[in-house]
Structure formats: C-alpha cells, structure tokens
C-alpha cells in the first residue's frame, strides 16, 4: 500500500466509525418515552460493552481454559504447563529474573523519584529539573533500550571506547565490561533502564502529594525543632504514605507486564528473559500455546492482588 492509500484507509475507518456513532445518536434522539430512554442508554453503552466482552472478557476466560491444554490446544493436560513453569530450569531462571525486576524497579524508582522530588521541591529551577527526569516517560521502551544499549556499548579495553559506561570504567583503569552479556548482572543492567523510565512517574505523583502536606503539620514540627533528615523521615514520608503505596504498586504492575526492554536489548538471550517476554517467545517462537497461555495466566494471577490492593489504596486517597 502506498502512503496515500494508507491515509485513505485511515480516513475511511474514522469516517465509518463516526457515521455509525452519528446514526446512533440521531436515531435515538427522538425517543422520549420510558422505553425509548432504555433504548437510548443501550445505544450509548452497548458498543463499549460489546467490545469489552469480545476483546477482554472472552479472551481472558479462553486463555485460562487453554492453559490447561497441551501445546496445540487439543488435549487436556491438567496442571502440566504450570508444573513446567515451576520446575523447568529455563523457566525457573525466568521466574528469578522476573522477581528481580518486580522487586528492584518499584523500590529503586520510587526511592529516586522521592528523593529527587524532595530535593527540587520549591527550588528555583523546579519545573526544568522535573522535566529532565520526567522526559524518559515520553520515550518508548524500545527507544529507551537503544539509548541504553549505546551507554553499555562494549569494546575491548585496548580500543577507543564509544559507550560512556565503559569509557568511565577504562578511565578509572579497569578492564571494560560486557554489561549486556554477563549473567547474572546483565539483568540488573536491563533493570536500570526501567528504573530510569519509571522514576519520573514516581517523582511526579510524589511531588504533588508532598505539596499537599498541610502547612500546619510542617509548621508544628518545625516549632518542635524538627528539621532536615528527621523532617523527611518522620513528617514527609508518613504524610505521603498512601501515594507511596500507589506508586509502588503501579510500577510493579507495569514492570510485570513490560517485555520491550528485554526483547530489544538481548532478545531474551544471555539468561535475561522475564515472564512477559517468555510468553511471547513460547507462543511465537516455540509455538507452545499451552505453556504460553499458562505464563499469561500466571502474570494475571500475580498482577491481580497488586491491582486490588492498588485500587483500595486509591479509594482511600479519594476518600480523604
């Protein structure tokens, strides 16, 4: 398809869609009776409900069902796929890596985001300083991976370095390091990329909630002679606890589902795969539908309690 054709296809799709919406609105507009109102509400709600049933509800149920079947989806195998996830050595490595991601990324990004938010709070360059840390949020994870691959670029110690990380190491007089190849630390270096992306999110939310701490609390603490680190430890952190939890849980959920960094930087090789990537790999490379759906269901199972906790915390924040 040429560029023009693509745009025409796009315009057709948008036009058809809006025509359908307009027709729905026009037809239901005239109905004023009690029954008419019911039809009206159906016209407003049903498109959304139909799409959600088709694209979320049905597939979710189907995936869970298929996770109890073999690689082609024919024979029922019970819990075999799940057993593979928890016993097979490749899969155990995936679980180990996933655990590292889900523990390190939320804690480190929240910590850095919090410290930075406090440090730049009400400083003269606050807006600019925040934008610098926040910018990676606008970048795709693929873009971020390429940016960091360049930072980690490896060349033998005897050569001129073009990656800044190894240039610094060499400058300090050490041998250059294969950041992306050497297991198990390579996983940590991939995790750093995600921390780099997520810290901006943590900073934004936490900064807003630091600004919302009532003045009188801080004033009272100040009169009691509290300052500096103590103020941070005993006033700031407890006051923003609900936001801290929301940030931690939200980042955990995002991290559990992210596969772009692993795919772009290592392709899951050198023992760096995580659950979200392994799902893709098992289905599209190994054609093992059973195992892939089991991994997806496991992600679902892991995400669920965090989401529920997250939502309850948000409700609490709302209620305040």
């Amino acid at each position: 398809m040429s560029t023009g054709e693509k745009f025409i296809q796009m315009l057709i799709a948008i036009a058809v869609f809006f025509a359908v919406v307009a027709v729905i609105l026009l037809v239901t507009q005239r109905l004023r009776s009690r029954r008419g109102e019911l039809i009206q509400s159906a016209a407003f709600v049903l498109p959304a409900i139909a799409l959600i049933c088709l694209g979320l509800l049905y597939p979710a149920v189907k995936t869970i069902w298929q996770s109890f079947h073999d690689r082609t989806g024919q024979a029922m195998v019970g819990l075999d796929n799940y057993q593979t996830i928890f016993t097979d050595s490749t899969q155990l490595l995936v679980l180990r890596n996933t655990a590292a991601w889900v523990i390190l990324v939320p804690i480190m990004s929240t910590f850095i985001g919090l410290v930075y938010a406090v440090l730049v709070d009400r400083s003269r360059f606050e807006k600019f300083a925040k934008a610098l840390v926040f910018l990676p949020m606008a970048i795709s994870l693929v873009g971020a991976s390429i940016i960091w691959k360049f930072v980690y670029d490896y060349r033998d110690s005897s050569n001129t370095q073009i990656g800044i990380a190894n240039a610094i190491i060499k400058g300090l007089g050490f041998d250059t390091y294969k950041f992306i190849l050497n297991d198990p630390w390579n996983t940590v270096f991939l995790i750093i990329v995600m921390i780099w992306v997520q810290a901006g999110f943590a900073m934004t939310i936490l900064s807003a909630s630091i600004k919302a701490i009532p003045e009188d609390i801080i004033e009272a603490a100040r009169l009691d002679g509290v300052g500096g680190m103590k103020m941070f430890r005993y006033i700031t952190v407890p006051s923003i606890r609900p936001s801290l939890i929301v940030v931690l849980t939200t980042i955990s959920i995002t991290t559990l589902k992210a596969f772009d960094i692993v795919r772009t930087m290592t392709g899951g090789n050198f023992d760096t795969s995580v659950l979200a990537y392994q799902f893709y790999r098992e289905y599209f490379n190994s054609y093992d539908q059973g195992l892939a759906t089991a991994i997806a269901s496991l992600i679902f199972l892991l995400v669920m309690p965090i989401v529920i906790y997250n939502v309850r915390q948000m409700r609490k924040l709302e209620a305040r």
Binding site: I52, Y58, P59, K62, K257, S297, F300, V307, I308
Partner: peptide, 12 residues
C-alpha cells in the same frame, strides 16, 4: 476488567 493484562487476551 482493568486488571486483565493484555498478554492474557492476545492468543484468543
């Protein structure tokens, strides 16, 4: 339904 990860929906 927000809790459904998109991976779960993909194959079906």
């Amino acid at each position: 339904l927000q809790i459904v990860p998109i991976q779960v929906t993909m194959i079906p």
